[in-house]
């Protein structure tokens, strides 16, 4: 009887050790992360080169206010490709994605609201008592 109990205790111990090893191995395997294929990296690089060419060409065409919009649009798209593929945000947790997006959201507030402030300062004439 004692003998059987001892064996059972041993096998439970073994199982616990085995599950710990498996958990560990799972953790290690997850660690290696997503390995992006060479094809994707080179494809992204070529796209970035192409867009660089486009942005230089557009500078020689007078589009008025649109020049600014096109140049910033292309640069933002290029930056997004770098963030998404080269910086692996595509393969990160939702938490990391949220943090990244929130950072650029605050940049948009910095740029947007300051420009709105300066842009609208001449719209109002303050009352004489404040001048």
């Amino acid at each position: 009887m004692l003998h059987i109990l001892g064996r059972r205790a041993l096998s439970v111990g073994r199982l616990t050790a085995l599950s710990a090893t498996m958990q560990l191995r799972h953790g290690l395997l997850a660690m290696s992360g997503h390995v992006t294929s060479l094809k994707v990296y080179i494809g992204i690089f070529l796209t970035l080169m192409f867009l660089t060419g486009v942005t230089v060409a557009v500078a020689y065409v007078n589009l008025g206010q649109l020049n600014k919009v096109v140049a910033l649009g292309i640069a933002t798209f290029k930056a997004s490709l770098v963030v998404w593929y080269f910086m692996h945000v595509k393969y990160q947790s939702r938490l990391t994605k949220l943090v990244v997006v929130s950072g650029f959201f605050f940049l948009a507030i910095l740029l947007g609201l300051t420009m709105v402030d300066y842009g609208s300062r001449e719209w109002v004439n303050p009352p004489a008592s404040l001048q």
């Binding site: 230089v56 500078a59 640069a75 930056a79 963030v83 910086m87």
Partner: peptide, 25 residues
């Protein structure tokens, strides 16, 4: 260090059109 390096690349992606390419027409 890759993340850091790509970030520096992104800054340049904006600096190039803003400083060199405002309007050449």
């Amino acid at each position: 260090s890759g993340l850091y390096w790509h970030f520096v690349d992104i800054v340049w992606i904006f600096l190039f059109p803003l400083l060199y390419l405002i309007d050449r027409s």
